[in-house]
Simulated scan of single mutants.
Amino acid sequence: MALPKKTSKIITVNNIKYSWMASGNDDIIYLIICLKESPGQKLLASFNYVNIFENDIVEVQIIPSIVKQVIEYAINKGWNPYKKGKEFNIGTMNDLINYTT
Results as ranks from 00 to 15, higher is better:
Asp26Met: 10
Pro64Ser: 08
Asn25Trp: 04
Gln69Leu: 14
Gln61Ala: 07
Pro4Ala: 09
Asp26Leu: 11
Cys34Phe: 00
Asn15Ala: 14
Tyr82Cys: 13
Met21Thr: 09
Asp27Ala: 10
Val50Ser: 00
Ile90Gly: 01
Thr101Phe: 04
Leu96Ala: 11
Asn55Ala: 15
Gln41Asn: 12
Leu31His: 08
Ala45Met: 01
Asn15Thr: 08
Val50Tyr: 13
Lys5Cys: 05
Leu96Glu: 09
Asp95Gln: 09
Asn14Arg: 05
Leu3Thr: 12
Asn80Tyr: 14
Ser19Val: 05
Gln41Thr: 03
Asn15Trp: 02
Lys84Tyr: 08
Glu37Met: 07
Ile16Leu: 05
Glu72Ser: 12
Pro64Met: 00
Trp79Lys: 11
Leu35Pro: 06
Leu3Ile: 09
Ile16Val: 10
Ile32Asn: 13
Ala22Phe: 01
Ile32His: 13
Lys42Thr: 13
Thr101Gln: 07
Val50Glu: 03
Ile52Lys: 04
Ile52Ser: 13
Glu54Arg: 06
Lys36Tyr: 10
Val50Met: 10
Gly85Glu: 08
Ser23His: 05
Val70Ile: 03
Val50Pro: 15
Gln41Glu: 10
Asp27Pro: 11
Asp56His: 15
Asn55Phe: 00
Asn76Gly: 13
Ile71His: 07
Gln69Pro: 12
Glu54Gly: 14
Leu3Cys: 11
Glu59Ala: 09
Ile90Cys: 01
Ile63Met: 06
Tyr18Ser: 09
Asp26Pro: 15
Val67Ala: 09
Leu44Phe: 08
Met1Asn: 13
Met21Trp: 07
Ser23Phe: 13
Asp95Arg: 02
Asn14Val: 00
Ile62Lys: 05
